[in-house]
Design a binder for these strands. Structure first.
Ligand SMILES: [Zn+2]
Ligand SMILES: [Zn+2]
Ligand SMILES: [Zn+2]
Ligand SMILES: [Zn+2]
Lengths: 137, 137
DNA sequence: CCTTGACCCTGTAGCGGCTACAGGGTCCAT
DNA sequence: ATGGACCCTGTAGCCGCTACAGGGTCAAGG
């Protein structure tokens, strides 16, 4: 079962739906550890790298920022610690997403309000332009 | 009534809730026209600049990208044309915001699903970590 | 007249999270 | 030996600002 499969960077990228440049980027910023190299200087990854990259990508897909992911990975590397702080980061992420949704919802309402005022005609008469130009001053 | 008020960049910035550097940035990218200068090389703005900057900032607050705002301004400068394309840009902006809201809503659901699996304990047993690590491979 | 301090100037570099080259090297099949 | 798929490093670009550094200008107060 210990098949010790090796991956080149392209394999890893395909397996995690990541661009090759992004994998190298994660290494550059210290998120993914530097793998050993072949004689020809190719990066050579193992299962551990695959798991770590998968973790990063899933977390990114859920909107976690890279610095938070760095913290998460640090916690994952201490598996005997209590997981409360992971829980907390997840909750903070939910709060961030909620705030963004609220922002965009307000935006959407204002946008609809503005867009619905246009009754056709020339630019000069357009209520959208009027709304964007603002009344005061 | 033609009071011909002049503004220095800081006045303009305050009047539109914009950072001074942002005003210069808009000028650099050709969104705000270069104003005349004083003898001491200070930018000197008039009402027209104020209106234009206000327009830009309102549009930005509604989420329009700068290149779209550039198009909008080009249309505003041809006030005898029909306003249909302005209408269309506003509708496209609404669609973009809708798409973002939909994305975030899906995200939020997935995040809640993941976060709610945690029942405490150590990192090793944490379901959040498990969910982020992924089952396959 | 001189200093202080608020304001202004230019130019450059940084943020996040990639993405896109340029200009090479490696490896394997035909 | 040659082609083509892949890999390497390094640098610059994207968006929309933001943050300096290192200077100049200008009006008020002592
Ligand atoms: Zn309104
Ligand atoms: Zn209209
Ligand atoms: Zn799920
Ligand atoms: Zn947990």
């Amino acid at each position: 079962m210990d098949m010790h499969k090796d991956y080149r960077i392209g394999d890893l990228a395909r397996a995690t739906d990541t661009a090759v440049e992004t994998v190298r980027y994660y290494e550059r910023i210290g998120l993914l550890p530097e793998p050993p190299r072949t004689e020809g200087n190719y990066r050579l990854y193992g299962e551990a790298h695959l798991h770590r990259l998968r973790f990063i990508r899933r977390a990114r897909a859920l909107g976690f920022h890279l610095d938070v992911i760095r913290d998460l990975l640090g916690m994952v590397d201490r598996p005997d610690q209590p997981c409360a702080s992971i829980d907390q980061l997840a909750r903070a992420q939910m709060a961030e997403v909620d705030a963004k949704i609220a922002d965009l919802t307000r935006l959407r309402a204002e946008l609809a309000h503005v867009a619905n005022q246009c009754h056709g005609g020339t630019v000069r008469e357009c209520r959208i332009v009027e709304a964007l130009s603002g009344g005061e001053g």
